[in-house]
């Protein structure tokens, strides 16, 4: 068990190294394009160009350039945006990250709890109207675009009915740091959480129901029933745990891509200055250092989330522990 965890960690580090090399090559070693000009931005003066060239080592061999870049990202953390007049990139991301992590974690908690409840209920009452109703609801959740839902939520809670007793607690758009005002943090994020979670509740409840129904025909489920266990116990103790495998791997990927910037639309609609929005700004300004940094950041999250999912497998399925 310990060995497999350590081995997985080693693989994770190796993958991260590979990604950083790949990202570096894509941005800085594309043939026919001078990275100096791209970092310095449009219409840069010759002096700026010269300074950039020396700072990033573009006159030296590629491995040196790579090492310089990684040093700037992780050690000195002084990667600077020229488009945005000397803004330091790494602190900018470190400031945006807590916003995104807060948003996504809360939403994830909601969608996991709700979808497990819905999926199990639907599977337990398979074929009945509750099952059909819940699955229809899930489909509706999947089909609603998040930006539209967010706008509607804002319209209702921020303007029309803001003064009614129901929504008077909703603060204005924007983020409140958890460390400063926990209650304010909760209030500011409650509606964004729900909005972001709707899509995933739909997907996850449907996936879980399908897996639970499929597992019903397994031999061990028949054994569990032959033991005289109650249908609920058969479903929850014997069915759910074995059905969680697809659920967990989906969750790892979705969570990682959201934290890595995929929650862009929700962030924009609710005025949250998160990583997604930062990436969007970097892209529209062609701010190369910032793009590079955000891509690395989200890669780190995807890879780490995958590692965590694998560890969860080890816990969920003893067969994986023994390497079968």
């Amino acid at each position: 068990m310990v060995m497999s965890v350590l081995r997985r960690l080693g693989q994770t580090l190796f993958v991260l190294f590979g990604i950083s090399v790949l990202v570096f090559l894509v941005f800085f070693a594309t043939p026919g394009a001078d990275p100096t000009a791209r970092i310095a931005g449009r219409n840069a003066s010759p002096e700026t160009m010269a300074r950039v060239r020396v700072e990033y080592g573009f006159d030296r061999p590629l491995p040196v350039q790579y090492a310089r870049m990684m040093e700037k990202l992780f050690v000195t953390r002084d990667l600077t945006s020229y488009v945005n007049r000397g803004q330091k990139v790494v602190p900018e991301i470190l400031e945006a990250a807590p916003v995104t992590v807060s948003l996504v974690s809360g939403a994830a908690l909601i969608w996991v709890v709700l979808s497990v409840a819905m999926g199990v209920t639907a599977a337990a009452l398979r074929g009945g109207w509750v099952d059909r109703g819940l699955m229809m609801l899930g489909l509706v959740g999947i089909s609603i675009p998040v930006f539209w839902l967010g706008q509607v939520v804002n319209l209702v809670t921020q303007s029309r009915y803001h003064d009614s007793w129901l929504f008077s607690w909703v603060p204005g758009l924007g983020y409140v740091p958890l460390t400063e005002d926990p209650l304010g943090w909760f209030r500011a994020l409650a509606l964004p959480w729900l909005t972001l979670a709707v899509l995933f509740v739909g997907i996850y409840s449907r996936v879980l129901r399908a897996d639970l129904v499929a597992v019903q025909s397994e031999d061990f489920m028949r054994t569990a029933r032959a033991k005289g266990l109650s249908p609920m116990r058969v479903l929850l103790v014997h069915g759910l745990r074995t059905s969680m495998i697809t659920f967990v791997s989906l969750f790892g990927l979705d969570f990682a891509q959201l934290v890595g910037g995929g929650a862009l639309l929700t962030e924009v609609v609710f005025g949250l200055q998160g990583v997604g929005r930062l990436t969007y700004q970097a892209l529209s300004n062609l701010d190369l250092p910032l793009i590079m940094a955000t891509v690395m950041y989200s890669a780190v999250f995807v890879v780490i989330a995958n590692a965590v999912v694998d560890m969860l497998y080890l816990f969920l399925d003893p067969r994986v522990r023994d390497g079968r």
Binding site: D219, F220, A226, K227, T242
Partner: peptide
């Protein structure tokens, strides 16, 4: 029926590999 199953009438199945819950 549930009170009877496993207590007064028990059953064993063909493939003991798949008949136990793997986890």
């Amino acid at each position: 029926y549930r009170a009877l199953r496993g207590r007064e009438i028990a059953m064993i199945f063909q493939d003991p590999m798949t008949a136990f819950t793997p986890v």
